[in-house]
Amino acid sequence: MYAIEVERLTKIYGKGETAVTAISDATFQVRPGELVAILGPSGSGKTTLLTAIGLINEPTHGKVVIDGAAVADEGWLPGLDLKRLRREKLGFIFQAHNLIPFLTALENVMIALEINRLTRREATERATELLASLNLGHRLHSYPTALSGGESQRVAIARALANRPKVILADEPTAALDTENGRNVMALLKKLAVENHSAILVVTHDRRMVEGFDRIFRVSDGRIVGEDGNGISRDFT
C-alpha cells in the first residue's frame, strides 16, 4: 500500500477566462519510508500540490489517497473530517518553522499531541523523548526566539513527528537555513523516513538540498515534467 497516491490531480483557481491552472494532471505515488522531493522554481505549482495532498486546498479534479484512505475524487469526498485526518495521518514542516512563539520547545511539540487527545503526562513524555532524540534535550524550556534556525526547525520536525504520522509534508524546510543547517535537516528527514517508516514529501526549489533523496519529481508550469531516482532520470512529455 502506498502512503500517498495522486492520480491526475488538477487544481484550477478561478473560473472562465480568469481561470488559472496551478497544477495539472499530477500523478505519482510515494511508499512508506520513502523520501521524495518535488523540485521546481518559484510559481511552478509545487506548494499547491503539497496543499492538495495536505488536505488544505481542495483539488479541482483527480484523486488523492492518503495511507489507503481516499480523500479526494473530483473534490473532497463527502463526510470527510479533514481536521481529524490532518491530525492523525499528516505531519507538516514549514519554511519558517512556524513554532508558536509563546510556547516553549517542549510545549510546541506537546500541543500537537494534546490536540490529538493525548493526556498531559503522555504528551510530556513523548515530546521530551522526541526532542531528546533530535539533540534538543537541553532546549526543552526555551522559547523559539532563544533557539537558532537549525534548532527551531528540529523542534518543528519533532512537532510534525509527534503523532507518528504516515505522511510528512515539508514546504521548503531549508529555505530559512544556511547551507550546513539545511543539509543537516535534510539528512535528519532521510533518517526519520527510514526509522519511522513514514513517507516524506518535500517541496523545494533548491537542487543542492535534495541529494540522497529516493526520488525527485521535477515540476514546471504546473506539470510534473520529469523524475529522477534510483539512478534513472526520465522526462515526461
Binding site: G54, I56, K83, R84, R86, R87, E88, F92, F94, N98, I100, P101, F102, I111, A112, I115, N116, R159
Partner: peptide, 16 residues
Amino acid sequence: IRTIATLKLIGSQNRV
C-alpha cells in the same frame, strides 16, 4: 494569524 493558521493546519479544533 500565523499561530492560528498553524494550529488549524495541525488539526486543532476551532473551540481551542
